[in-house]
């Protein structure tokens, strides 16, 4: 019971930490885009990669809305399986996105972190939301 009681705030804090880092990446994404372009790049190439990364970050924010909706509405607030999954994936996202920002990883690595750390918990959250409505 005490473990379950601490899962709720831990999950919320990792979720908000991931959200904070994603919003920060919106501001500082220039360096990451330059990391995956050759030394001599055109403005067109920069805009293409910038648009691509912007779409990825925006979709990530959309997935955050799904996960926060499920959490704050109470559907999965006390579901310990979803809490552990969310906790592990968002913690991993915080660490890897911190490396992404500080070490200026190339922009294609964001898709790997996006697939593993944002899509999977949001997908399971969505399944829980749908299965609740069918009951």
């Amino acid at each position: 019971m005490s473990a379950l009681k601490s899962l709720v705030p831990a999950r919320f804090l990792t979720l908000v930490a991931h959200l904070v880092i994603v919003i920060t990446i919106f501001w500082s994404r220039d360096n990451n885009i330059k990391s995956c372009l050759p030394l001599e790049f055109t403005e067109e190439q920069f805009k293409t990669e910038d648009t691509r990364l912007l779409v990825a970050l925006s979709v990530t924010l959309g997935l955050f809305v799904i996960e926060l909706a499920g959490f704050l509405s109470g559907v999965s607030m006390f579901n310990s399986n979803q809490a552990v999954l969310s906790l592990l994936s968002h913690s991993g996202a915080c660490v890897s996105l911190s490396c992404f920002v500080f070490q200026q990883w190339p922009c294609w690595t964001y898709w790997i972190m996006f697939s593993l750390c944002s899509v999977i918990p949001a997908l399971f959250e969505f399944i829980l939301l749908i299965s609740l409505k069918s009951v």
């Binding site: 709720v8 705030p9 919320f12 804090l13 908000v16 930490a17």
Partner: peptide, 10 residues
Amino acid sequence: FHLNGWYFAA
């Protein structure tokens, strides 16, 4: 209130 307490600590 509960989540805000934890958030403010962080």
